[in-house]
Design a protein around this nucleic acid. Sequence first.
DNA 1: CAATATGCGGAGTGAACGCTCCGCTTCGTT
DNA 2: AACGAAGCGGAGCGTTCACTCCGCATATTG
Lengths: 214, 214
Amino acid sequence: MKSDVRVQGSEKALRRDAAENRQRLLDAAATVFSERGLDVGVDEIARVAGVGIGTLYRRFPTKDALVSELVRQVFDDFLTVANEALSAPNGEGLEQVLYGTGAILASNRGCLSRMWNDDETTILRDEYRRILFELLARAKKHGRIREDATDADLDLIFWSVRGVVATTRGVTDTGWRRTMAIMIAGLSPGADALDASPMSAQHVAQIIDNMSAR
Amino acid sequence: MKSDVRVQGSEKALRRDAAENRQRLLDAAATVFSERGLDVGVDEIARVAGVGIGTLYRRFPTKDALVSELVRQVFDDFLTVANEALSAPNGEGLEQVLYGTGAILASNRGCLSRMWNDDETTILRDEYRRILFELLARAKKHGRIREDATDADLDLIFWSVRGVVATTRGVTDTGWRRTMAIMIAGLSPGADALDASPMSAQHVAQIIDNMSAR
DNA sequence: CAATATGCGGAGTGAACGCTCCGCTTCGTT
DNA sequence: AACGAAGCGGAGCGTTCACTCCGCATATTG
């Protein structure tokens, strides 16, 4: 979703073979982490990518940095989906972005457990959440979502679906889709009154902080 | 929830000091795993329990065995809550057991990530699920839950809440409670039609198998 | 083509961690 | 009190895994 290797123009361009290898490493890492989790060793990543371990470490200072880059790309995808949903009519954008987010989560299982963020990812995440909140407001205005739904409820949907995706692995997509449908139905105007108060914004902020902390 | 040390009467009773140490280890493990996750080393568990590493390994053959015992106790608690809910009137037992389960999950964060099961735990789990399904049927009969809700939806609630609990850590209980409320509302008769088909029983079985596999 | 910078591979290093082993201690019994 | 069985501690072992280092290879420039 972003092919230029340079970041903020501060790094020198890579030699052609080096750039290729970098991409192979990212592809290999995405595949292997998805299929077998983040505990797979770096040597396995290098092997699948067809390069040496040294090459991996010349391109990514630590294993965490490699994972971070993958996470950054996932958030990049989230943001793309969110921006597209902004064009949806009649307040339908919220549902669109939620299902889109679920689909991305489902195809990036490997990175699910480590969602903490570097500075760049934090920016993407904040922008993504800002758009989600805007879409929630629109959905309310069109009567698709109940008035007492809160921004924090969207975070709950995210964490819930992430949990279901992590559990259902590659077995089926019906699990997270059904979860999404149930939660959206629970936030629709016709549903019963909710028997629990929403999370406070302070709590949400603290939780997100914890994720970044490690 | 079960103080006798013997299992199936096949093991000899422990010496008094040994039994004490065993309990201290379980308590220490529950605390430490809850607060810092399952990656904490066995030496730390032993240190907190105030015993040597050797003592830990004389009582539990592997670290996994120690975790398994904790998991078994959690499922024991699930089953207790489920049995209590069977006495609830007017089909209210389902909500009771769901919130009870959430509370147990929230107080056992450490074991969340490894829910795979030994034989004994599998029995507890199956019985627990059987009761949940019974309570779902009753809730439907009393018009508290929509007719098109399925057994598998209860598994989704479990996995969702577990995901939220894992994310919200010790910050707040409002997160998982709100999630539960939203999902129950989504399964209430008044809510919108669900925009997704349920998980098949086969898929659920496969997913649960995967959890036991490792 | 020559010259130089950049990149490459993978054996090796150090740290973390699960687990074992054995000399010493404590408990329970007679 | 005396004795054997059971328990205890923790140094140390083996393995795993992230990461480093350096002699060789390749791309790029002029």
